[in-house]
């Protein structure tokens, strides 16, 4: 069974992503737990709900608002990264969390590499199906790359500038970088 990262730990996982072949409709669905594309969900939501064990994945071109009415009845939502450089999934994840109130598992799928998971976690992903040929352990470590952040996002909406403890210049004292000395 493949390993993924979920809530900061490596776990076995048997969810299967259903991807339509280019230009073709989806045929018979495989047994077990499946993650189907948004288009299939919107076309057959009731039947899929009756089947059970179904999650939905969004592509970069999908509008997360279309999934919003269904979120209460889902247990897993995934966002696809066709290429790791395609950053649309970051905004989609942020919107699912902060605007549409998704609280269940939000999984990054597709070209998910260790060096992107830190940012993914900040915008709301809590599960990472790291690409099979890449190290899950490296990705797990990468979740701890930075211990702080300037700007708010889903993980912490409060930006650094709203913290009371950021210093004013006078309290930083003198050192070699002090440029505004008495001439």
């Amino acid at each position: 069974m493949p390993e993924i990262i979920r809530k900061g730990a490596v776990v076995q996982d048997d969810w299967q992503v259903v991807r339509p072949e280019a230009g073709q409709a989806i045929g018979a669905l495989p047994p077990g737990r499946i993650i189907v594309p948004l288009s299939l969900w919107l076309a057959q939501a009731e039947a899929l709900l009756a089947r059970g064990n179904v999650g939905v994945w969004l592509a970069g071109t999908d509008d997360p608002a279309q999934l919003a009415p269904w979120l209460e009845r889902l247990s897993l939502v995934a966002v696809d990264f066709p290429k790791f450089t395609d950053g649309r999934g970051f905004s989609i994840a942020y919107l699912l969390r902060s605007r549409f109130g998704w609280r269940g598992e939000l999984r990054a799928i597709g070209d998910v590499l260790p060096d992107q998971v830190f940012y993914m976690q900040r915008v709301g992903f809590d599960a990472f199906a790291v690409r099979a040929d890449r190290s899950v352990a490296t990705a797990l470590r990468a979740l701890k790359t930075f211990s702080d952040a300037y700007q708010g996002s889903w993980d912490n909406a409060v930006p650094a500038f709203r913290r009371a403890d950021r210093p004013w210049p006078e309290s930083l004292g003198q050192d070699s970088l002090k440029t505004r000395q008495q001439a």
Binding site: G87, F90, F118, M120, R122, Y150, Q151, S153, F161
Partner: peptide
């Protein structure tokens, strides 16, 4: 302020 806001902005590191 913009330098800080944009530095490591998690949502906008892989723009078009």
């Amino acid at each position: 302020i913009l330098r800080q806001w944009s530095t490591f902005h998690p949502e906008f590191a892989f723009l078009p």
